[in-house]
Write a protein that binds this DNA or RNA. Sequence first.
DNA 1: CTAGTTACTGTTATAATATATCAGTAATTC
DNA 2: GAATTACTGATATATTATAACAGTAACTAG
Lengths: 155, 155
Amino acid sequence: MFQKNGHNHGRCIISAMKIATDLCAERGVRLTALRSHVLELIWQSHQPVGAYELLDILKSERRNAQPPTIYRALNFLLNLGLIHRIESLNAYVGCDTPHTNHNTQFLICSGCGAAAEISDVRLDKAINALAKDAKFSVKHRSIEVEGQCPNCQVS
Amino acid sequence: MFQKNGHNHGRCIISAMKIATDLCAERGVRLTALRSHVLELIWQSHQPVGAYELLDILKSERRNAQPPTIYRALNFLLNLGLIHRIESLNAYVGCDTPHTNHNTQFLICSGCGAAAEISDVRLDKAINALAKDAKFSVKHRSIEVEGQCPNCQVS
DNA sequence: CTAGTTACTGTTATAATATATCAGTAATTC
DNA sequence: GAATTACTGATATATTATAACAGTAACTAG
């Protein structure tokens, strides 16, 4: 769901980082300084952010950062489910429920750019039903809905 | 829905081109030789095809074709709904129902690469419902489901 | 603890997708 | 037939992503 305009975003970041640390410990994989840093950068907002945008910020601290630097970190985080890729934007956004096996959907606001991750069971069931009708075996879903979030709607 | 393996694809092409001609006439826009040609190329199969792949084919006939050549034609066709863009593939596929105001979904086979356009009302309703819950006003949907089509499933 | 191995990062180059801009040509309109 | 609008040509460049190889850090077995 979309965050309220003045929400305490610091908490979102702290929580996300703790979830990531725990998940990596649990899985026995290394959340290196670089990966951790990239994840923090992604979590600076609820707006999906592009790889090169991240790279530019990263460069101000690691001036030798190159595209592979960022893409490796992104792929690591994607594989763990700590971030999602928004296909229609070529951008990346944090996920605060990486542990749950989520068939999620995104509502993307064209006003403020924020993306809300939804996990709607009705929708998921509808997809399963239509796939069954088509005798199609589902592997991956990319459900992205663009429009205006409550904060950005002019009434 | 997915086409059967040995279907008469010539008919798909002829039908699509007629639909396009009619639609352009109705809208008073010009289906120029270039645009018509690009549409035909897209309709050579039910597999979404990339812009540069189209460009390469186009070049064998118009050797001065450049990226803008193909992107202009694609944008024209997209605006009319004669083709769709598959975001998760950066590729384009023909639409045989451009006149209907369609909130469609795509089933994309990772085996053969074919994309089936579905217009499932349950799914559409589910999206409307979840958007309403989130007080989100929907403008555009991108629903892309990847998996195996009936023809490609190993049983 | 140290040699061997695996995982991670640095670095350079390049691939793949898409758009901006200005000039010229064809079609439509008045 | 002149003016306007729409379309195409042509060059340049922006944006997103990956390949490949070298070097370094971390882990693992003995």
